[in-house]
Design a binder for these strands. Sequence first.
DNA 1: TAAAAGTCTTAAACTAGTTCATTTTTTTTC
DNA 2: GAAAAAAAATGAACTAGTTTAAGACTTTTA
Lengths: 197, 197
Amino acid sequence: MNYKESHKLLLSNVSRFINLTELEKQKYISLLTEIKVKKKDFLMQAGEITKYEYFITKGCLKVYTLDEEGAPHISMFAIEDYWTGDLSSFMTKEPSRYYIKATEHSELLGISRENYDLLFREIPKFEQFYRILYQKSLISYIRRSNYGISLTAEERYLEFKKKYPQIVSRITQKDLAAYIGITPEFMSKIITKVNRM
Amino acid sequence: MNYKESHKLLLSNVSRFINLTELEKQKYISLLTEIKVKKKDFLMQAGEITKYEYFITKGCLKVYTLDEEGAPHISMFAIEDYWTGDLSSFMTKEPSRYYIKATEHSELLGISRENYDLLFREIPKFEQFYRILYQKSLISYIRRSNYGISLTAEERYLEFKKKYPQIVSRITQKDLAAYIGITPEFMSKIITKVNRM
DNA sequence: TAAAAGTCTTAAACTAGTTCATTTTTTTTC
DNA sequence: GAAAAAAAATGAACTAGTTTAAGACTTTTA
């Protein structure tokens, strides 16, 4: 069958871990919602109960919390072919602490909690897909949770640049500072220093 | 059937997410290896390819890396009813960067990579078990990966004490410092300060 | 149970990263 | 394409956390 580009990208993402029949592909796609977000608009805000888990087909978004002083802490940047959302609020149905804002015009495919549950009943293979997807994410978050406490800000910056070169060029220095966990002023100093070397 | 205490603890852990028949329980248990580690002995060391994922039935272990200066960074403490290991090395079969050392005499149940793969074929329900287990771990590591960059050392200490009171009392201040990401000297200052309040 | 090894505390000098204030540069908007 | 808004750069004064060193306390081992 002939799928749209966005669906092709998703199906190719899923086929990394499981094989679907034509019928299963169509069933899966029927469970998804298409969502568009303009630059600077929110996909979701703190206080809301997360309705969807998202797959990004186009654009770039930042996922962040605000601390008591109102300072943002970015927990991830999501671009094409990435999954994002607030898994905690999605699962527990409790209000989220996260904001998700588009830093570019973005297009996403969302799966609602009802359809997520239905998916496992209709196509049990998806248990395996999510088992592997979560396993891989877990491995990278376990590593990342150590970076914050064991590397200097400069090392974290170099690490990010090396791992996500395609993201660095699409975000502001200020947002990168909020991800690395430092002030924009110190981020500026680090970049000046690194470029001088 | 009458199971040993260690097997009962594991089966009760598993039954949080899936229901097993008697036959499945017996099959599952037959895939496990019993392991004992004396205090101060290593369960595994950096450079090795991880053979097992572990469930702790007794004791306490620390999972850590050493940086270029030889300073330890503890990524988790594992006690009874916890799962541990190096998931990355276990899955990729590449050498691990982690050390796992018993801080008390410990007893564990290990599942080898071959038996882990076999488990999914023999009892497909385990895909769901691990999907949920990894999902929950992922949620807590996503949260934790922000702590290191967004909280002060004192806040991280209070957070740890609140979340894991039963662990604080079983580990040294020095190890706690290596987990929080600060020097033992500064850990000492924080504790003095917090107790004074 | 004495000696040795490891842990904890305290303090002074230091450094990585922050805060605040100002100017320059870039991007957005009408 | 000019005006406004946001981002980036620079610097001086500050603070959270490190380093080094030494003594007190606790646990382990022979």
